[in-house]
Design a protein around this nucleic acid. Structure first.
Ligand SMILES: NC(=O)c1ccc[n+]([C@@H]2O[C@H](COP(=O)([O-])OP(=O)(O)OC[C@H]3O[C@@H](n4cnc5c(N)ncnc54)[C@H](O)[C@@H]3O)[C@@H](O)[C@H]2O)c1
Ligand SMILES: NC(=O)c1ccc[n+]([C@@H]2O[C@H](COP(=O)([O-])OP(=O)(O)OC[C@H]3O[C@@H](n4cnc5c(N)ncnc54)[C@H](O)[C@@H]3O)[C@@H](O)[C@H]2O)c1
Lengths: 220, 220
DNA sequence: AAAACATTGTTATCCATTTCACATAAAACT
DNA sequence: AGTTTTATGTGAAATGGATAACAATGTTTT
C-alpha cells in the first residue's frame, strides 16, 4: 500500500524537484507570485508543459494572475515529501563517493546520505562529513537497523551486480547507479542510471553530427 | 559544415555510447557474434529498439545469424569518432571536479579532460592526474590554444551562468553541466544537465508514489 | 540438398509527451 | 462599472519514441 496519490506522467515527476528548487529561489528572493512564462524562463521548460504539469495536481493557479509562490512551494513540499527526511546509503567511498559525501544534499533536499560502506580497511570505521563508513560485511545489518531503502552505488563496475543483489535482499527499493554496469534487478526495484561517460560521449556525438543550429547560410 | 551524416533520433544517439561500451566487453570476452536479444539482456534495452537503432545506419546484421561483433565494433568506433581524441576542459576543481579528474575517461572513451580551471590560488599551477590547473583569467586564451570546444562545469551554482557566457564567447559548443543552475546559452550551444539532486529526489518520489510493482496481493 | 531454425529489418501500431491555441476567468486599469 | 489586459487550464493536434509482429532471408542441421 503505497501512498495512494495520483499517477502523473513520469516525465512530469522528473521535473517536480526542479520546480521545487526554483520555487525556493523565488521565495528567498521575496517574490510573491510567478507566471508559467516566468518559471519557464528560469527552468528552461516550455510554459505550456509547466501548466500541464501543474494541472495534474488540480488548479493551483489563478487565471490572469499566475501562481502564488508560497502556496505552490508548500504544495510541492508536501508532494515531494520534503517534510520527512529520506535516509540514503552510499556504497563505495572512492573518488566519486567521497565527492557525494562531502556535498550536502540537505541544503536543497530533505535527502541525506546517512551511512556509507566500503571494503577499504583504511576507510572503515572513520567518519567523513559526519557519516560513518562501515565494512561491507555489516551492510545488511546496518541497512535494516536504519530502515534504509535507497542506495547510491559508486563502486568499481565489476562489483556492481553482486552488491545490487545483496541490496535487493536487504530490501533496498531504489538505486542511484553511477557505475557503467547495467543492473539486473527484481521488478520491485527501481534503478536510476547516471552514466557520466555516456553523457559526455553523447554530447560529443550531438555536437559532431547535429551541427548545433549552424547559423543558416544566407544564399547570395 | 558539420560531418554531414544522417539525423538519427536523439534517443538513439544517446544509446550509441552504451552499445559501444558493451560491444567492447563482448569483444574482449572473445565473442564473435551477438544477437539483438543477447545485447538487449546486457544493456537493458528492448531488442526491437536495438534493431531499430542499428537500422538507421543500414543493414548491419545478417538474418538468421545476428551481428558480427568485430564489424559492429569498428562501425561504431567510426560513428562515434573514437579514433580521434576529443579534448575537454574542466571548470571548477572542487569535490566533484577532482573526482572527474581522477577518473580516466580514456579507459572507455576517446575523451579526455586535457585542462582544468579554478580560482583557488592553492590549486592553480598544480597538476592533478597529469592535468594542469590554470587560473580562470587565462581560460579563454588556453581554450583557444588547445582548440577545445567542450567543457565540464563543476563550479558553485552562482558562478555557472557568467562562466557559461565566457565559455560561449570562447567558442565552446558543448557543456556538461553539473551545477543546479539552468543555463541560458546561444542557440549554437548544447548543454547536457547532470542534476544529481534532481535524480535522487525523483527516485525518492517514484518509490513513494509509484509503488514499484508491489507484489500483487493475493486475496484470500 | 532439403528441411528446420534463427534472427534480422521493417511495417504498422501503440503509447507518452509536448505543444498549440483558445475559451475562460480573474486582475488591473480607466 | 466597464474595458482591457493577463495568464490559466485544457481539448485537440503534433511529435517522438517504443514495441509487436512477421515476411524475408540467411544459417544450421540432417
Ligand atoms: N570518478 C568519476 O568521475 C567517475 C565517472 C564515471 C563513472 N564512474 C564510476 O563510478 C564508480 C566509482 O568510481 P570512482 O572513481 O569513485 O572509483 P574509486 O576506485 O575511486 O572508488 C571505488 C571505491 O569502492 C570501493 N570498493 C571496491 N570494491 C568494493 C566492494 N566490493 N564493495 C564495496 N566497496 C568497494 C573501493 O575501496 C573504493 O573506495 C565506478 O564504477 C566508475 O566507473 C566514476
Ligand atoms: N559534489 C557533489 O556531490 C555534487 C552533487 C550535486 C551537485 N553538485 C554541484 O556541482 C558543483 C560543484 O560541487 P562541488 O561539491 O565540487 O563544489 P566545491 O565547492 O567542492 O568545488 C567548487 C570549485 O569551484 C571553484 N570555483 C569557485 N568559484 C569559481 C569561479 N568563479 N571560477 C572557477 N572556479 C571556481 C572552487 O575553487 C572549487 O574548487 C556545484 O554547483 C554543486 O551544486 C555537486
Amino acid at each position: 500500500m503505497s501512498s495512494e496519490t495520483l499517477k502523473i506522467p513520469q516525465a512530469t515527476a522528473k521535473r517536480l524537484p526542479l520546480y521545487y528548487r526554483f520555487l525556493k529561489n523565488l521565495h528567498s528572493a521575496g517574490k510573491l507570485r510567478v507566471s508559467s512564462a516566468e518559471l519557464s524562463e528560469a527552468v528552461k521548460v516550455d510554459s505550456a508543459t509547466i501548466r500541464r504539469d501543474f494541472s495534474y495536481f488540480g488548479a493551483l493557479g489563478k487565471k490572469g494572475y499566475g501562481y502564488n509562490v508560497d502556496y505552490l512551494l508548500s504544495f510541492f513540499r508536501k508532494t515531494l515529501d520534503q517534510d520527512e527526511l529520506t535516509k540514503v546509503a552510499l556504497v563505495g567511498v572512492g573518488n566519486l563517493g567521497t565527492a557525494l559525501l562531502n556535498y550536502n544534499f540537505l541544503k536543497n533536499n530533505n535527502t541525506k546520505i546517512s551511512v556509507a560502506f566500503d571494503i577499504d580497511e583504511a576507510k572503515i570505521g572513520s567518519t567523513m562529513s559526519g557519516v560513518t563508513i562501515y565494512h561491507m560485511d555489516d551492510m545488511e545489518k546496518v541497512l535494516e537497523e536504519l530502515g534504509i531503502s535507497i542506495a547510491i552505488l559508486t563502486v568499481p563496475a565489476p562489483y556492481a551486480q553482486s552488491i545490487t543483489d545483496r541490496l535487493a535482499k536487504a530490501n533496498v527499493k531504489g538505486i542511484l547507479n553511477f557505475t557503467p554496469a547495467r543492473l539486473t534487478v527484481p521488478a520491485t526495484m527501481r534503478v536510476h542510471h547516471i552514466d557520466l561517460a555516456v553523457e559526455l560521449q553523447s554530447l560529443v556525438y550531438f555536437l559532431k553530427h547535429y551541427g548545433v543550429n549552424e547559423v543558416e547560410e544566407i544564399e547570395e
